[in-house]
Amino acid sequence: MLFFMETVISGLLAGIMYSLVALGFVLIFKASGVFNFSQGVMALFAALTLVGLLSGTVPFTHVDNPSFAIPAWAAIPLTIIVMIIVAILIERFILRHLVNQEHIILFMAMVGLSYVFEGAGDIIWGSDVKVIDLGLPHGAWDWLLDTHGLYIEKIELVAAAAAVVLVVVLAAFFQKTRIGRALRAVADDHQAALSVGISLRYIWIIVWSVAGIVALVTGVVWGAKSGIQFSLSLIALKALPVLILGGFESIPGAIVGGLIIGVGEKLAEVFGGEVIVAIFGRWFEIDPGIFTATENWFAYVLALIFLLFRPQGLFGEKIIERV
């Protein structure tokens, strides 16, 4: 029973890590109707920038110069400034020219943007594995493991705390502030928002900046687990099933979707083989060992089921269009 609990808790915490990635997608989709395919690479780029500043990497040379190293209290705001500049550039060179274009055109632009981010990250900061040192805790929570035999990773608790803070702040921002309401208006209809005097450009810069900050948090938390490296960009793939489950426009949906995916995939990987054998073992000879590496695709199976029965996700808005 303790191990089952441990699996569920680990799943919930892993789910929060997925939710962090999904949050960035939701923010941009909610405010601009754009599916930001480059969110994963943005997380990588933000984390690369932060670790580059922390370690004093000279941009474009990939050489660390400790005398250029910047302490965390300055490096984090500087990285945020970089992400805001990136948001301004994206608005100036991409979004401004694609107002009211078809979704597929915006999506393809985001695919292209992801390559730009990846290439820029590589050229500016290099392709090495980088270790981020922000003093984040690592390893198991010793007290819990020693006294109760329960294994929980400390970094995942940090991720959970970060996710809670982000959700509260973002929910307040969207619901309570004037800019938040403007963001929602833009998401509903670009033309209508323009007609009532909302500056589309200003809104887009704000939302992409916020998504950049979320990307930074995501990159740091995931990077703390594996080192900052280019495979970080692939975490975006973990967000897709979360979004399908939770709905593309819902911040609580991103969290709940992440939790369901996290728990589901951990239970499937750890107990799936045994359950299948218990059910079908009396008729067929089944090796439970073949049910391995389900962790990655199980989320997509869940997403497919949701697409069949509730395509808008748990919290998404049901879209009814006149044909």
């Binding site: 680990s10 995931w222 990987e269 750890v270 590496a293 962790e295």
Partner: peptide, 12 residues
């Protein structure tokens, strides 16, 4: 599975 960024269940 590739790339192996998340393998918590394996280690459980």
């Amino acid at each position: 599975d590739h790339p192996g960024q998340e393998q918590k269940a394996t280690w459980l």
